[in-house]
């Protein structure tokens, strides 16, 4: 997928904000009525990464880890407090108007569309803002709408559309001008399974055809597994992982999930040495280190009258959960 042309270069960036703080003394409380007291809060700490043309990057982290802040810096909304960002050879903040001509942005919680009128009018306005000739714009809008199966909804007011339909139009609006990079800030939030799948497939197609770099923040691990070739994990503003999914699993997925369905009667003292992840009526899920897999399987088969058995790799969700809980474990 990657052509090895660097499109995004982030070097040692940090970002802090001034946030309100509760004053303690009476005098400060009075002063606070007129001028809010503030303190510095560091969101991003010494972050560096590179992204190449055609990459589809999953940018994940817990709530408050700095994902949206990073996207805002990469899209030129504000500069980092320190460090350097270069996107498409430009400084996103200093050369913003020139830079944003080549990017598309979809915010999950802020709409580019006017809620009261049909999306076609908002998208035509977008086309004007990006200097796309009218005829070409109309052709592209119809093309994208057909691909995303929303062509019949072009003239329906946005407020009457479902969330999935709105997100499709948001994506159309952000792709109209053939951006080199698309930033998607939690685009699948609130979407049902089918809508999410359609959107992911569409993004994949765009990436394959146009070699568009996609930078995606999400909490949905299925999105990451389906589409991303590169993952960056943030933990409290620091990068804890930067690589591909395969390597991530090699480092962190050094165990297997063994799920068994068993008969009611079993030897209760048998499973004392086995690590259990989940336990319901007749089902137990064990966590078995790869090195001790045979030993575990032997013990399990000795202790239980097994009806069904399944051995799986840990899910990405479990891996990321472990990283959040334990922190970064270097190779």
């Amino acid at each position: 997928m990657s052509d090895k042309i660097k499109v995004i270069s982030v070097k040692n960036i940090s970002k802090s904000f001034r946030v309100p703080k509760k004053p303690k003394s009476t005098l400060k409380k009075i002063a606070n009525l007129f001028v809010k007291a503030k303190k510095k809060k560091q969101i991003i700490k010494d972050l560096s990464f590179d992204i190449y043309k055609g990459d589809i990057v999953g940018y994940i982290g817990e709530n408050g880890s700095g994902k949206s802040t990073t996207i805002k810096m990469l899209t030129g909304i504000y500069p980092p407090s320190s460090g350097k960002i270069t996107c498409l050879g430009k400084n996103p903040f200093e050369q913003r108007i020139d830079y944003v001509k080549d990017i598309g942005v979809v915010f999950g919680n802020k709409s580019l569309l006017n809620q009261d009128i049909a999306p076609i009018y908002s998208i035509e306005l977008q086309a004007a803002i990006y200097d796309i000739p009218e005829k070409l714009a109309k052709k592209k809008i119809n093309q994208f709408a057909k691909k995303l199966q929303v062509e019949k909804l072009l003239k329906t007011p946005v407020r009457k559309l479902s969330l999935g339909e709105r997100m499709k139009f948001e994506i159309i609006a952000s792709l109209l001008h053939n951006p080199k990079i698309i930033f998607l800030d939690e685009p699948t939030i609130g979407l049902d399974v089918i809508a999410r799948e359609r959107m992911i497939q569409f993004l994949k197609t765009v990436n394959e055809k146009e070699k568009t770099t996609i930078f995606l923040t999400t909490h949905n691990m299925d999105d990451i597994e389906e589409i991303c070739n590169k993952i960056i994990i943030l933990d409290y503003g620091k990068k804890v992982y930067d690589g591909n999914l395969k390597e991530l699993k090699e480092i962190y997925a050094n165990w297997k999930r063994i799920t068994i369905v068993y008969n009611e009667k079993y030897n209760p003292f048998c499973d004392r040495d086995l690590e259990i992840i989940e336990k319901t009526d007749n089902v137990i899920v064990f966590k078995a280190p790869n090195k001790k897999l045979e030993e575990y399987l032997n013990k399990i088969t000795n202790c239980f009258e097994i009806i069904d058995l399944k051995i799986e790799e840990p899910t990405l969700k479990e891996i990321v959960k472990r990283i959040y809980a334990d922190g970064y474990v270097p190779k």
Binding site: K72, T75, G76, I77, R96, I97, D98, V100, K101, I103, V105, F107, K110, S111, L112, N114, L125, Q126, I129, Y130
Partner: peptide, 22 residues
């Protein structure tokens, strides 16, 4: 409300967009 973000990611003068987009 942070809605200014949607204007900042467009390649036109921000003040123009604030004043005349709606």
């Amino acid at each position: 409300t942070g809605q200014l973000n949607t204007k900042l990611v467009k390649p036109k003068d921000t003040f123009f967009l604030i004043a005349l987009e709606e």
